[in-house]
Computed example of a mutant assay.
Amino acid sequence: MVAPTTQSTSGSVPPSVFTLPHTAQLEALYTIIRDKNTSRGDFLFYSDRIIRLLVEEGLNHLPVLPKTVETPTGAIYEGVGFEGKICGVSILRAGEAMEAGLREVCRSVRIGKILIQRDEETTQPKLFYSKLPQDISQRYVLLLDPMLATGGSAMKAVEVIMEHGVPEERIIFINLISSPEGLKNFSTKFPNLRVITGWIDQGLNEKAYIVPGLGDFGERRYCS
């Protein structure tokens, strides 16, 4: 399990937040996807590499149980096996981009979808659509969304998942870039929910965009 670290100077990171080890390779990958001149093809390729790393780290936070197996040499190996089943839930539309990374490391994993948009009258996030596995209450849930700005959509998604019987501590939120403000809001409301993020940026600007950020992830991912 990776110890919490931060790149932000806006305050300490909540204890439930974990980041990837910040190697030169990881910073190079983020430099590529942040660059406004990066082609769509390169943005897809390098963001997918980061997503794969994030999913792998998310799996490190799942509980395991002792498991004994016999190797082809006839020797006994005392190892571990995952405890319980998992599923993914993507927040549409940008979260769908992370589904492939989850499927690459978890064969036949079930994936649900949640669509949340801002209600123009109340300015609050509103649920417009959800389709979740019927047995989601019996699974650990990896919640997928690449960007955490104010945290409104992610918090609403967690509420929807918990309404379907999933305890807070069995949800792991995975994203590429977070703002300190969003992490504080999210972790204050859900202190027992672990967050796996690739990078914590400086903060939000007057339009509530993450700075320096990488722009609109969905637009860069799906539009040429």
Rank of each mutant, 00 (worst) to 15 (best):
T123C: 07
S10Q: 14
R220H: 10
A154C: 02
G182A: 02
G95S: 14
V166R: 12
T71Q: 09
E181G: 00
A208K: 15
F128Q: 11
A28W: 03
V105K: 15
M1L: 12
P167G: 12
K207N: 15
G84S: 08
S224R: 11
H22W: 14
E78I: 04
M147T: 09
S47E: 10
I111T: 14
S8H: 07
L53P: 02
A3K: 15
Q124V: 04
R118H: 00
N60T: 08
Y209D: 05
M98H: 06
G58V: 10
I114P: 06
I33F: 11
T73V: 00
L148I: 11
E83F: 09
L132V: 05
L92F: 07
K67I: 02
L54R: 02
A97E: 06
G165D: 14
S108P: 00
T6L: 13
R49E: 09
R221I: 09
D119M: 04
S108Q: 11
S108L: 09
F190Y: 14
K113C: 03
N37V: 08
L44K: 11
T150D: 02
Q25N: 11
Y222R: 12
Q134V: 08
Q134A: 01
I116M: 04
V89R: 10
T122A: 09
E104V: 05
N37R: 11
G84V: 13
T73M: 02
P72V: 02
Q202T: 04
D35P: 12
Y77N: 01
L183W: 10
D201P: 11
S16G: 00
D135A: 03
L59I: 14
F82S: 03
F173K: 06
L102E: 12
M98T: 01
T19L: 11
L62H: 04
A100F: 03
E168Y: 00
D145H: 03
S153M: 05
V80W: 03
G74D: 08
A157V: 01
R34G: 13
A149P: 03
V160N: 01
N205L: 00
T9Q: 15
E219R: 04
G165P: 13
P133L: 07
L44P: 02
F190T: 05
T188R: 07
V17R: 06
K131W: 00
G88S: 11
V105W: 02
P180K: 01
P15K: 14
S187A: 14
L127R: 11
Q124M: 15
F186A: 02
R40C: 06
S153N: 01
L26Y: 06
Q25L: 11
